[in-house]
Design a protein around this nucleic acid. Structure first.
Lengths: 120, 120
DNA sequence: TATCTTCATAACCTATAACTTATATAAGTA
DNA sequence: TACTTATATAAGTTATAGGTTATGAAGATA
């Protein structure tokens, strides 16, 4: 479930249409029609994107007559934040050690020819 | 290019194998064989995952004889962090206003029947 | 030199993502 | 009641993601 959430959350954000929808929702609640308006896609396409975002815990739905306004939720964002924090911490740690590590490698490889610059 | 990076970065993290690879790299540099070892996949599959991660700016490659050790990079993470920060800020702002907004809505809809609890 | 190791790449297969059109449902309106 | 609006869902299509096997290339080693 944790894993499923991360899969869903990250893959939800991988689509530019869905990021645009979230950016719009960052300015406040909006209905499906309002969300669909800026796009060239059909309304069902937007509804499907919204389902993906909802399943990922990134938005929630409210009922207002025939309308279903969406707004941002934080479950999905929290999950991603946690994971990215792990990576960032590792990067910082590795950066702290980078100088000594590189120094050690240079020394170790000093006798061997170091081929650099692969083509691809 | 910014957009492409975000697409690539988020969709790279959407795959659990790739997240596991990054988690492993968070403990330090590793070769392709070392990265492949814990998985049931073939080596080419891992190489392809590594290409995805590299294209997303999440890892970099070093040359050491026939080996190509990978380590974490921060370009991709920075891009995602920025984007998520926007969402988080919006969530906080909306949360600040939530009480008044909800109050306003309740008042506005007071006369109308509010049907709650959709089935699906 | 011949062989082994490490890795990348190409070609192929299959499941799924992201659309479409068609249609259903529920609430608002005349 | 009949019509319209707002939305969801199903079914079909096409591109792509993620795996496989086969193979190649470059460096290490005997």
């Amino acid at each position: 479930m944790k894993i499923l959430n991360l899969n869903a959350a990250f893959s939800a954000l991988a689509d530019p249409t869905r990021r645009a929808i979230l950016a719009r929702l960052a300015t406040g609640e909006a209905t499906v029609m309002e969300l669909a308006e800026p796009f060239e896609m059909t309304q069902p396409a937007i509804s499907q994107h919204l389902k993906v975002l909802e399943d990922a815990g990134l938005i929630v739905r409210r009922v207002d007559g025939t309308k279903r306004p969406r707004r941002l939720a934080n479950a999905g964002i929290d999950a991603m934040d946690q994971w990215l924090a792990m990576l960032r911490k590792a990067l910082e740690k590795n950066y702290d050690r980078l100088d000594e590590v590189l120094a050690g490698m240079e020394q170790k490889k000093a006798q061997k020819k170091i081929k650099t610059g692969e083509k691809r």
